[in-house]
Amino acid sequence: MKLSICTDSMGNLSYTDMLDRCVELGLEGVEMTGGGWSPAPHVPTEELLADKGKLKAFAKELEARGLEIAALNVSGNPLDPGALGEKHRKDTDMTIRLAGELGVKKIVMMSGLPPAAPGDSIPNWITYTVSWPPTLQDALNYQWNDVAIPYWEQLVKLSDEVGVDKFALENFSSMLVWNPETLFRLRDAVGPKVGLNLDPSHLFWKGADPIASARALGPAIHHLHGKDARIERGLADVNGLLETKVVEDTVNRAWNYVAVGAGHDLQWWKEFFSVCRMMGYNDWVSLEMEDLTMSVEAGIEGSVAALQQTISR
């Protein structure tokens, strides 16, 4: 396994300064965003696609530092029915095409989440039993069969055209694909190019065991995010793990995203990476630093140190 970082956490740095900092940290690669919810601080996707000279200069800066692009990331909701979805679909297409130009084989993104019925304006994450009311069964069928699967069939076709080999879908909340079971539903429909970006942090607060998930996924693990979460004592015990407070309200939340090692100890992380390697995954691990309980720099340095000690080389 090789260690990279999701570079949005260093969005205050210029492209070249960010690359220099990655070298200082001992990283081997970068996972950079090309759009979606991110402002894409380091990847001017449209400019690079339009100008071969800029594209060549962009790649040269990486080569000069011995860094690789672990993946291009375009996380967002391309299935949103409004202007947001239109933008995210455009960003997704451009990022896939840019990956083809750069020779990057992996796209990290999210499955998207549609509304529950034609004409609805708000995406609907159905996580309650569809027995009550039974109309939820029709809503899920609409989301999957009428919206998501046709869209993903088109994305797989585009990836074939430009030479992208893998989609790694993050098991994020408020997405149609949010755990291994939902990943396999999409994968079975559109093919093995679609796999999971196995991010333990989201599975922790959903009550799942990421190590068991890794065993179940096997070759469907397409990417790993090094990201931890902590269930907050005394709060989750009272209110459970469903949490609607903003992420900045760390002191009152039942769970928080934290630096690697601040939620689960290094023994846990060693076992996690060992099992992922045992199941056949021997590729990039990208640090995603979203800990709001400490400074960004402290979170990055602590997480890099923890991951360097635990990934399976």
Score class of each variant (00 low, 15 high):
residue 293 T to N: 10
residue 1 M to Q: 13
residue 263 G to S: 06
residue 31 E to V: 06
residue 78 P to G: 09
residue 60 K to G: 03
residue 126 I to E: 12
residue 7 T to R: 00
residue 87 K to M: 11
residue 278 M to F: 11
residue 101 E to A: 15
residue 75 S to I: 14
residue 281 Y to E: 01
residue 47 E to W: 06
residue 62 L to H: 12
residue 231 I to G: 06
residue 200 P to D: 09
residue 216 A to W: 04
residue 42 H to L: 03
residue 6 C to P: 00
residue 260 V to A: 03
residue 179 N to F: 04
residue 197 N to H: 12
residue 127 T to I: 14
residue 204 F to H: 09
residue 102 L to N: 12
residue 274 S to M: 11
residue 139 A to Y: 13
residue 143 Q to A: 14
residue 228 D to C: 00
residue 60 K to F: 05
residue 256 N to Y: 08
residue 298 A to L: 09
residue 277 R to I: 04
residue 173 S to T: 12
residue 94 M to H: 10
residue 121 S to E: 15
residue 255 W to I: 03
residue 108 V to K: 06
residue 172 F to H: 15
residue 131 S to H: 12
residue 31 E to C: 09
residue 176 L to Y: 08
residue 141 N to D: 15
residue 189 A to S: 13
residue 42 H to R: 04
residue 229 A to Q: 00
residue 220 A to C: 08
residue 131 S to F: 14
residue 62 L to Q: 04
residue 274 S to I: 02
residue 205 W to F: 15
residue 222 H to C: 07
residue 302 G to D: 02
residue 305 A to T: 09
residue 63 E to D: 15
residue 208 A to H: 13
residue 87 K to I: 07
residue 43 V to D: 01
residue 119 G to L: 01
residue 62 L to M: 10
residue 214 A to L: 05
residue 53 G to T: 14
residue 145 N to K: 15
residue 121 S to F: 08
residue 148 A to R: 10
residue 42 H to Y: 03
residue 204 F to I: 04
residue 64 A to Y: 00
residue 27 L to R: 02
residue 190 V to N: 06
residue 238 V to S: 11
residue 253 R to W: 02
residue 199 D to T: 12
residue 12 N to M: 07
residue 48 L to M: 02
residue 188 D to Y: 06
residue 235 L to E: 08
residue 296 V to F: 02
residue 157 K to F: 11
residue 192 P to M: 07
residue 156 V to T: 12
residue 232 E to A: 06
residue 222 H to W: 03
residue 41 P to L: 06
residue 216 A to F: 10
residue 69 I to Y: 02
residue 45 T to K: 02
residue 230 R to S: 04
